[in-house]
Amino acid sequence: MIALLGLVVGVVAGLFFEPSVPVALQPYLPIAVVAALDATFGAFRALLDDIFDEKVFVVSFVSNVLVAGLIVYLGDQLGVGSQLSTGVVVVLGIRIFSNAAAIRRHLLHA
């Protein structure tokens, strides 16, 4: 319940304050958001599997974001930033899809 509330509060705050993204963070923010989404979907699936653990969620959330940012940073340093970001987004997208499928099976039995 609090988690849902937090999500809503975050979205509202982002829309309300309309802060501009710092230049240094601009390449990383989209990837970080996708990585966090992946962690969130994984957590939701774990919740439905009845194996949810807050600590695991926090660690996976933070590490997902950090690793995604690290990969993008590395890619930028190596000169393959855009391709590597695309790769990260694809991988995370696949994971989000499979997690979403598991969630669907739990909730809809289909």
Binding site: M1, I2, A3, L4, L5, G6, L7, V8, V9, G10, V11, V12, A13, G14, L15, E18, P19, S20, V21, Q26, L29, P30, A32, V33, A36, L37, T40, A43, E54, K55, F57, V58, F61, V62
Partner: peptide, 28 residues
Amino acid sequence: RRRPGRGQTVAGVLLALLGFAAAVQVNA
């Protein structure tokens, strides 16, 4: 329906961060 605990709060904060970042990015 679970009663709010510390873990729930942390998860809520993280999700708030996620929502915030997503909204900011969409705006940008």
